[in-house]
Design a protein around this nucleic acid. Sequence first.
DNA 1: CTGAAAGCGCTAACAT
DNA 2: ATGTTAGCGCTTTCAG
Lengths: 362, 362
Amino acid sequence: MNTPAKPRKSSHAATLADVGRAAGVSAMAASAVLNGARTSARISEETRDRILEAARQLNYRPNATARALTSRRMNTLGLATTLNREELNQYFLEVFTGVVEAGAELGQNTTVFALEDWHRQASRIPSFCDGRIDGLILLAPLLDDQEAQQLPDHTPILSIHSNVIIPGVINLESDEEAGAQAMVTRLLEMGHRRILHLAGPNHSLGARRRVAGYLRAHEQAGVEPPPDHVVEGEFHAESGRRRLTQWLEAHRGEELPHAIFAGNDAIAMGCVDVLVARGIQIPQQMSLVGFDDTQLARSARLASVRQPLRELGQRAARLLVASVDAKLGEGQPPAATNLVLPTELVDGATLSAPRPGPLRIT
Amino acid sequence: MNTPAKPRKSSHAATLADVGRAAGVSAMAASAVLNGARTSARISEETRDRILEAARQLNYRPNATARALTSRRMNTLGLATTLNREELNQYFLEVFTGVVEAGAELGQNTTVFALEDWHRQASRIPSFCDGRIDGLILLAPLLDDQEAQQLPDHTPILSIHSNVIIPGVINLESDEEAGAQAMVTRLLEMGHRRILHLAGPNHSLGARRRVAGYLRAHEQAGVEPPPDHVVEGEFHAESGRRRLTQWLEAHRGEELPHAIFAGNDAIAMGCVDVLVARGIQIPQQMSLVGFDDTQLARSARLASVRQPLRELGQRAARLLVASVDAKLGEGQPPAATNLVLPTELVDGATLSAPRPGPLRIT
DNA sequence: CTGAAAGCGCTAACAT
DNA sequence: ATGTTAGCGCTTTCAG
């Protein structure tokens, strides 16, 4: 692997005109043959062969940008997301994989637009819709109504887990409140009482829904939620570590919670770090459950609430392609309903009956 | 979130001509103002303002494909990779994040081309280089010399962890053999003797290098590697599960290995499943180490060999952009050397001294 | 059956 | 200081 890289020939790619010239025909004869479709290609067998041969020899590839200029189609889907600089985003990876998969089946590529922050960079979104993509998926956007109004309307847009209703934009999500409620009910039924919920940020609709599920589970079980047991934070491990540490410091000497319901898997992984460092055994002394069931959770054997993230990505890609087709006059637009997919509980090694005796926070 | 999605206006985006018309000037006056650069834009303050105002009102966005047609630049990098349908690819996520990060700093987007198999789909690669991207990164390509010859030469290409030398293509990698050797040496020094290596596929150069490191470590320690302790497999968890299960079946009644050196983290995670299912305690009864130090490993507290994957991605993006710039006559091409970054050992909870007594495979 | 012409939206020459 | 012209590579009428 240590051959000095020879400068590669930077020959321009062959054009249709080149192919035509080589085959002794016009460029559009070549076009007619090489796109194989549309024009009632009544080119004679013989010239067709000459053209194909010339194309092969010149290694002809149609230029996507030129083609897009007329066809108004790049066969590319856009996926806008925030990517934390510190931590990899497993939630993104799950959805992204679904988009890429389903997109590939429909002949679409996927390009990723990485935002640092939805609010600060909302103004960049229209610039994504500049012809390079045919449709855009907003992944867990945090926009306010005002920003939502600014979205361009010449490119089909679709959102996953949006925190606001965006007029004209289909939204896909899963039933987070039900999932949270089911998980907390499960904990309560196992006998856990002091359940600490390390939630996501309040400006996230999903985070609020998980809190709602937590509260409703208590209500339905006729259990008073312990005071001060819902903590707002961010959806990443570092936040989980920090918030849990702070919370434990602030409640030193009190009874340790029986279980932690983390707002997502990343937060849960942060909790693992803190608990391990303090020698608190999972799940013997404390149960821990997450949310999302990302691959991270599965590999750590974390009990979690499964959201069908990959399927959300797949569906998003398919619906978006249908919208693009419809806009270009091919086929009907998808029935523009918002989709809510079910969640389900996933078992893991971090969940067990509450510890028999009391344990104080040190 | 259940508002029926109103069909959005599918108005075409405004063009320069539209802006010019609205401002009462020609399209190229508008162009001169709105691109802000190049042409000695000696447009009068007054018309400049009219144009800017019109652009704002019409919500003008330059069309990327039209622009690319003349500028020959889309400001987009391509990343070609295989994405397993069954398992998420953490290795990909790490590198990808690096590419996106560094690319974004240079104003580049990243588009992903998902291949199912390098050999079967090698012929698709040239079609990625059709003007939609300015440069292409091949991530861990498995190509033969013949296929490498077919790569187009009008688009700058760069590889990460390539298994063959591709003339004219810069390759970035890390010192896998040294990393493997260091890790196995570490195990040997701790007293482990029967070290099982669940390797990747032989057609992968990286897999072969890890095997080489395993063997060299034994050699340098003057330890004869136990027979039949290197097993070829694939670089994913399912393969790890299957190979380890098969190997244990085939060696029933013999002494259990002291440690497993997995060819990558995914394989190691597969081993965890099998060992847990058999009640073999990690690390008390068996140590386990991986390779790559992906986030999966970190969250599972797996000891591993760290490759600077994110940095490989960042460097790849920066070098590729430099190549693209150079090809367009802006700046010098990067010194075309292949880069080998160092690896390092990462501690974890899965590594300890060998068990005191013998233990038979059941 | 095939070629000529026009245009997608933008930009870079050259004219005014 | 502004407008005209031509062309990037491809496709789609419309003439031959």
